[in-house]
Computed example of a mutant assay.
Amino acid sequence: MRTAIDFSPLYRSAVGFDRLVNLLDSAARTDATPGWPPYNIERIAGAEDAGDTYRIEIAVAGFRPEQLAIEVKENVLTVTGKKDGEDASRTFLHRGLAERSFERRFQLADHIRVTEADLANGLLSIGLKLEVPEAKKAKQIAIKTADASAQVLQAAE
């Protein structure tokens, strides 16, 4: 039996962490189909910017490209698969393939950009890259000393 976790104490004591608490809250909730479709999340090693490149692979066997949609909105990557109606002319003796529509959501960190999407051999691969803006990158600050300012004063006299 799963019990709900109450995150309200975090809202009262942590200022500016609303997004983090919302992420924890959404992760604690159960999904109707938590394991379907199966997927992998991979950090790409060997790239020149290793650690900044990721790939999500989703098993979408039986889906055509026109039945799949990928959308990014407010740091949420949503992958949707819509199956066409049932084909009444087909009679199954055993039906083991899950041919149902789905919606899978992934919460993205700030500055993660979707770079590509590829469908091959029943796997939908979505490339992601962390692109930190120049304004957010660390900067080196020159340190002035008292000797340097004294030299400037002497040169001005």
Rank of each mutant, 00 (worst) to 15 (best):
T3E: 09
T3Y: 09
T3F: 07
D6L: 05
D6I: 00
F7V: 01
F7T: 01
F7A: 01
S8G: 06
P9T: 04
P9R: 05
P9S: 11
L10Q: 08
Y11L: 14
R12F: 13
R12D: 14
A14P: 06
G16M: 05
G16Y: 03
D18G: 07
R19V: 15
L20Q: 12
V21P: 14
N22G: 12
N22A: 15
N22R: 14
L23M: 15
L24R: 10
S26N: 14
A27R: 11
A28S: 14
T30V: 15
T30Y: 01
D31G: 06
A32K: 10
T33P: 01
P34T: 00
W36K: 12
W36N: 12
Y39N: 13
Y39A: 11
N40M: 15
I41L: 10
R43P: 05
R43S: 03
I44F: 02
A45D: 02
A45V: 01
G46M: 00
A47L: 00
A47N: 03
E48Y: 03
E48S: 04
D49R: 09
D49K: 09
A50M: 03
D52P: 02
D52V: 03
T53A: 02
Y54F: 08
A59S: 08
V60G: 00
V60K: 07
G62T: 06
F63W: 00
F63Y: 03
F63K: 04
R64H: 12
P65D: 07
E66G: 13
Q67F: 10
L68N: 09
A69S: 15
I70F: 07
K73E: 07
K73M: 06
K73Y: 09
N75C: 09
V76C: 04
L77G: 12
L77C: 13
T78G: 13
T78K: 15
T78A: 13
V79G: 02
V79D: 02
G81D: 01
D84N: 01
G85A: 00
G85H: 02
G85E: 04
D87R: 01
D87Q: 05
A88R: 07
T91W: 13
T91N: 11
F92W: 07
F92C: 02
F92V: 06
F92N: 12
L93W: 07
L93G: 08
R95G: 00
A98T: 11
E99K: 08
R100E: 13
R100C: 09
R100P: 08
S101V: 05
F102D: 04
F102I: 05
E103F: 10
E103Q: 15
R104L: 10
R105N: 09
R105S: 07
Q107S: 15
L108P: 09
L108R: 10
D110V: 11
I112C: 11
R113H: 15
T115F: 08
T115S: 12
E116G: 09
E116Y: 10
A117G: 08
D118K: 09
A120L: 06
L123R: 13
L124K: 05
S125Q: 09
I126E: 01
G127A: 02
L128S: 04
E134A: 15
E134V: 13
A135P: 04
A135L: 12
K136F: 11
K137Y: 00
Q140Y: 04
I141N: 00
K144P: 02
T145R: 00
A146D: 14
A148I: 13
A148P: 06
A148W: 12
S149R: 14
A150M: 06
A150V: 07
V152P: 01
V152K: 05
V152H: 02
L153V: 07
Q154T: 12
A155P: 04
A156K: 14
